[in-house]
């Protein structure tokens, strides 16, 4: 009786492990494909699109994850093939420095203006 119980709990345990690993993998595939632009679609990510291109990219993500590559390695691989445009989240480098810094500069500038106004009113 006890033995049976052990076996059943072992099976449930392994099923659960398998299930949670599979779940984890699907989550990663979704996360990576949401951050990739479907280059032949209008305003769709690889995650959203059902085009042949997007389906192939998803197959590639699965293959790369199975090979043990990290998300960044997958992004870098695709960047070499298709250019920076394929990634939604642009990395901080000399080409994107203005893009990242202008909101910050405007924020500080605006903050200074408000600060000065408040001080002057007081």
């Amino acid at each position: 009786m006890n033995n049976k119980f052990n076996i059943i709990s072992l099976i449930i345990f392994f099923l659960f492990i398998n299930y949670s690993f599979a779940d984890e993998k699907i989550k990663r595939i979704d996360k990576v494909s949401k951050n990739l632009r479907c280059l032949i679609c209008q305003g769709q990510s690889v995650y959203d699109s059902q085009s042949e291109f997007a389906l192939s990219i998803r197959d590639l993500i699965i293959k790369k994850i199975d090979e043990g590559e990290t998300d960044d390695e997958i992004y870098d691989y695709l960047k070499v093939k298709y250019g920076d445009w394929i990634i939604y989240d642009p990395k901080f480098d000399k080409n994107t420095i203005l893009l990242w810094l202008i909101p910050l500069i405007l924020f500080i500038f605006g903050g200074l203006l408000i600060f000065r106004k408040v001080i002057i009113i007081k």
Binding site: E52, F53, S56, D59, L60, K81
Partner: peptide, 8 residues
Amino acid sequence: NGLISIEI
């Protein structure tokens, strides 16, 4: 499966 085309 289209993986070679992505490689290219």
